[in-house]
Amino acid sequence: MTNKPSTVKGSRLSTFFKRDPLIFWGGAVVSILVITALTAQWIAPYDPLLQVLNDRLLPPSLHHWMGTDQFGRDVFSRLLYGSRISLAVGFVAVSIFILIGTTVGAVAGYYGGWVDGLLMRLVDVVLCIPTFLLILMVIAFVGPSILNIMVVIGLTAWTDVARLVRGEFLSLKEREFIQAAKLIGMRDSRLIWKHMLPNAMGPVLVAATLGVGTAILLESSLSYLGLGVQPPTASWGNMLMEGKEHLTDAWWLVTFPGLAVFFTVLGYNLLGEGLRDMLDPRLKGSGRNG
């Protein structure tokens, strides 16, 4: 595995994947996940909310691939439907924080001066309390619902993106083509949208990919404290939480949702790291083998 130019002839995509197993494996996990989430209602063998009280806590079998839970619900079906919730939490939260972060970062970086100062102090305020504690505090007081969880994660996690985008903008601003565009009197909004943002999107894409994983993890952590998605709606977090009461007698209840979270987050992170390596020119072609 070296980063010498590939000699393999064939489609660009396959070369690309061969060159970067992180992206390949990460991408594979993520795609499988998105597909299962979208098609849950056709794949799932049972209604995820259907309680069959005579079938409580059955171990995995041919009928119930991942066993049943304490209410006789099919764990596999719940896991599939739960993936929708977990992914939705991830995607929406990330969209929110990318949106806020990019806007704040772009405005601060582009205009500089007191606008920049003010916005960066805002970032400082949000960063002042460790993110998880801040999320806890807000959710505990606004109450846990899927929407609240998405919004609160989104509202607290945008600071990194803002800093990233601001940094990119600061350096872009000095570049000749931007200076030139300014000189010919291009409008600010057009300049930002057409010329600067696209150039700053690489790191944002990486942050977004990593962010989905983090949001899924956060939802499961919140569930542990009873602040995650509320039952009976299945999310991986609350499945784990409910399963932990049966740690010693029904291993399948904690094992499968745990693995699901694990592989998903791992997938997103590997993908994100792969993208980062690919997109960041500074990290390429360096080191001993360069």
């Binding site: 499961s220 542990y224 998903t264 987050v265 790291e273 990290l283």
Partner: peptide, 26 residues
Amino acid sequence: AYYQNRFFDRFVSVFTFVGYSAPHYW
């Protein structure tokens, strides 16, 4: 970084992300 894109680099990525990706309380 020293062994960028070689086995050790991959190993460190996977090893550390495995730790990050599993829910702590689980």
